[in-house]
Design a protein around this nucleic acid. Sequence first.
RNA 1: GUCCCUAUCGUCUAGCCCGGUCUAGGACGUCAGCCUUUCACGUUGAAAACACGGGUUCGAAUCCCGUUAGGGACACCA
Length: 497
Amino acid sequence: MKEVRTRFAPSPTGFLHVGSVRTTIFAWLLARHFGGKFLLRVEDTDQERLVPGAIRALLEDLAWMGIDVDEGPSRKDLEMVGELWEGAPEIGGPYGPYIQSLRRVRYQEVAEELIRCGAAYRCDCTPEMLERERLEQMARKELPGYSGYCRDRNVPASAKHVVRFRMPLKRSLTLMDAVKGRVTWDNISLRDMVLLKSDGLPTYHLAVVVDDHDMKISHVMRADEWLATAPLHILLYEALGWEMPVFAHLPNVMGNDGKKLSKRHGATHVSLFREGGYLPEALLNFVSLIGWAPGEGEEQEVFSRDELIKRFSLERVNNAGGIFDYSKLNWMNGVYIRNLSNEEFVKRALPFIEKAGLTPRLDRFNKVSAVVKERVRLMTEVPEMVAFLFTDKIERDLPAMFQKGIDAAKAREILLSAEKRLEAVQNFVAHDLEAALRPLEQEFSMKLGPLFGVVRIAVTGKKVTPPLFESLEALGRDDTMKRIRETLEALPSLQAA
RNA sequence: GUCCCUAUCGUCUAGCCCGGUCUAGGACGUCAGCCUUUCACGUUGAAAACACGGGUUCGAAUCCCGUUAGGGACACCA
């Protein structure tokens, strides 16, 4: 069997979009599943849309997701397009360069060959002429599109020109798509599309076909929107006498209103998910499940990277589009966070704590990591939950204490008693602390909830926190007692109110 | 407008190719209960879908046709 080689071919116009990341993941999964190669090819043939730094961003996003690339731009390629950065990885590969603007000579050669064999022709119509033609067609309520004016004019190479494909008239064609199945065109509605632009660079159509052939791509996996122009690509393979790859057109991922994913829906770029507190393995898992399922009575949904690779198959990819459900992603992220070891959780949470402007104290954080990680779905929720451990300036929500018949005076009594009991504790550890405070239940003939709530707010400031006794242990005896005293002082002043 | 793709709970889906085992299964979300020091976790349960209309068949979510509704393409953008 031929080596499976797939590619991700973005144009460097920004960050990795979640809409396209799924196509990327599927292509990568397929290559990994069959022990093949996954390549990154930069499609920068539209010089006007280039965004400096985009290649780097793309590469970093892929790396964060755990999508490793076997062949792609070398440092030299990057340098030649002015996109080399300090610490850029050396990728490279046998079929480089992997940046299209560096391959222009090759496309021109192929274009010439197509002209020679009659499959393409030069066209010197100016954009103005084409625009006028379009307007006239629209006025006559016709389909806008190139008329084929230059088809047989033998425009000389010396004129400023584009190269167009000579679209056969009345040609029907069938594509066996790996996910769509049999797709048939009775009469291809495409006009004579441009293959080589007047600036000497190819359009997407020429470039993909040439590169996918040259780079020995076995499976062309790309978004749905390319299906309509697939006949052009097929005809190009035919004209060139090249063996066709397997095509797999994947439906798009939409936002919850069925529209293309945009900022409105939430994070749209992989980098935003990273900042938003998502774990890459959770994102990978979640995105893989949009449009793909192991199937056959299989109910597992949480798959490690290796499991995904092992079980992925193109046959089981859905042909319907999917919607990106953020709330399910959030749930899954929580599952992944809970599955982290305490050490790993701490390590990954640290940057988020620092970013929130806190100086983490590891001695304290380590003591609550186990109980905190089970309470968050996003890493960005960690700072707020543990802030009381890292700062003395806590704002207390005192009114929240006053419930179930507790008023300021009662709260004082409770805190006084708690203070005394806590002072008597020998080992300031969660288990002993709990044993010391449980008797408050009898003393005040009240449920533990509101009673502990008073202590909770006194010490952490908030009514929703990690479990009380782990929190007290992490805070330590000195700070715990100090905060209780502070609250005691603050309490009488509230009585007047 | 022309061409192409798609159609199972709100969402992701299993089942569809090889019709009966589907009074359509799971997950997220929602609601209710349990657990419980808050919040979570966990756990029990509930509501919730075969787009519609015709066929074929003893029998259709499953096969065929049509309709409708979404999506995509129709550039010297990808």
